[in-house]
Design a protein around this nucleic acid. Structure first.
Lengths: 325, 325
DNA sequence: CTGTTAGCGCTTTCAA
DNA sequence: TTGAAAGCGCTAACAG
């Protein structure tokens, strides 16, 4: 930086101001400095910047083992962050006690991140989020209900469930079963509660206990053994639905005639799950992008109240609920 | 840190030594300092540490849009890094020109990472890797062939292809077609080359152009239209195989009787792809862990020659090649 | 074995 | 509108 300053015939302070886009610098000086900066290929030292408080890095904390969807979210965040001159640092918390999330946040504090995006996943993690004190703004990418303790940019779970269940009802299904994912999880509860509000028969619920195909497979068999006879399944995740498809075949149920099956998530591969899986697609790119945006907004205005943005899902109808032409 | 030093009745330098586990500090002093450290809940400022050169963060640069497998890799790296007191910062490069990879590495330089793990993905990115000059050790998580420009911790592609193709041959298949993934990609070339060495009929190749189910679906149809009549398909990725399964059904081919199908990757969900997908499973946890290990090894001994560790795949045989009992 | 003394590269008052 | 000076929190010689 001293070199740049010398070459441009200004002080280091001025170079610093140009770097941060300080409008106080007169344009002619600024232009000259910028010219020297890229002639010399100068790049500021992030660590030194961070030392002064104004770090240009955002934290990402995942409260569950990363899946394809978290990867997509991360990619979107990374892209948006890069565009704004920020970099990303990540932590992953996969325990059941919320302890790792706390540690992950500690690590973000140590690194002096400007703000953090958190995917709390479980109820316990959400609680940690509500209680923890950190010196930077946070935004959750999972909904935390009304009056959230921090900003939220998440999927509109209620709306998404409505989309799926109403579709199932519109095609004439009356015994719509729900197969929930990992129990400890916030979204498992949201989805179940909304489904129950719409369907009203708790007996048609079965927890798969995980978001996997195997879990879905076993859950449908278990339900069948219990004597439950649904004419539709609303699976809590696409992979759960994949397992259901196999179980249905083994139970002699034709899809969609005897059993309509809908997933949740909208993985690209779902087009080829069985006869094509009907599913609620969520825009993870948009979610990641908005999460970064929200971070920067909070940075700009630290004492604005936390906002809550819920993004709509989109229903994709395929052969698993409506026979294709 | 000054507070800790004062409370422990030592100098800041000693606190710093205790923190870095300097054996020069006598155990009694060290213990006293540690006691004060966690009584006061002191946590060192990473940025300040980084300013001195010895940053405790590792970079991860993905050369492709992150998928489930990169997510798994990232999780494993994160876990291993945390264990060793390191944190992770990530960049993603998805362009076709290698430009973004260069930028990603620049950003790692700016952040003064101690070392970086890179997944170059494409040939162009590998070239960038070979040419770029960075002030930290790098380890590639994709193989770069013999005499790599940096350390490599990757899947043994040759061995994995052998596993799959030999299995197909052992069950009596003679016309083993290969459906390759994204063309620009290093592993697409490795897999194709090894398949060709084993099978010897370039006519049985078709590029799907991407790693997706849709790409696999279209590729098999295209091959069929071309008049190719394979009795087995070795897909370059699990999702490609998923698309193949559907295309096969549409072509009136029974799996596995008329067409044996094998995937590559070992996604958990493959158990429920069609009749269960035979696939080459790779241990991403291990790969991530070893990549971190290799970073630390290089950090400890900067002028050791780059090493090349290739991890074996494991064949999982399922109904898509061998009818289940 | 431990303390003193200089910085690392940047930002930010405060003056000019 | 710009410059001078004073750190941010830590580590690394160099003494002692």
């Amino acid at each position: 930086m001293a070199d740049v300053a010398a070459a441009a015939g200004v002080s280091r302070a001025t170079v610093s101001r140009v770097l941060s886009g300080d409008p106080a610098v007169v344009e002619s000086t600024a232009a000259a400095v910028r010219e020297v900066i890229d002639r010399l290929g100068y790049r500021p030292n992030r660590a030194a910047q961070a030392l002064m408080g104004a770090s240009r890095t955002l934290g990402v904390v995942f409260g569950q083992p990363p899946e394809r969807s978290s990867a997509l979210l991360l990619a979107a965040m990374q892209e948006a962050a890069t565009e704004r001159g920020y970099t990303l640092t990540v932590a992953i918390a996969t325990d059941h006690e919320g302890e790792q999330l706390r540690r992950g946040l500690d690590s973000m504090v140590d690194q002096r991140v400007a703000a953090a995006m958190v995917l709390p996943a479980t109820e316990l993690n959400a609680q940690v989020l509500a209680e923890v004190e950190v010196p930077f703004p946070m935004v959750s990418t999972t909904d935390l209900g009304p009056e959230p303790p921090c900003s939220v940019v998440a999927l509109d779970e209620v709306g998404a469930v409505d989309l799926v269940v109403q579709h199932l009802q519109e095609i004439g299904r009356r015994r719509i079963m729900h197969l929930g994912g990992r129990r400890e999880t916030l979204v498992a509860r949201f989805r179940r509660e909304r489904w129950e509000a719409l369907v009203g028969d708790p007996d048609l619920f079965e927890s798969a206990g995980a978001w996997s195909a195997r879990a879905g497979y076993e859950a449908l068999h278990k339900a069948a053994a219990r004597g439950v006879r649904p004419d539709a399944v609303f699976a809590g995740a696409d992979d759960i639905a994949l397992g259901v498809l196999r179980a249905a075949a083994e139970l002699g149920l034709r899809v969609p005639e005897d059993l309509a099956v809908a997933g949740f998530g909208g993985l690209p591969a779902t087009e080829f799950y069985g006869p094509g899986l009907t599913t609620a697609e969520t825009d993870l790119r948009e979610r990641g992008r908005l999460a970064v945006e929200e971070c920067l907004l909070r940075l700009a205005d630290p004492d604005a109240p936390p906002s809550r943005r819920l993004l709509p899902a989109q229903l994709v109808v395929r052969g698993s609920t409506v026979p294709s032409a």
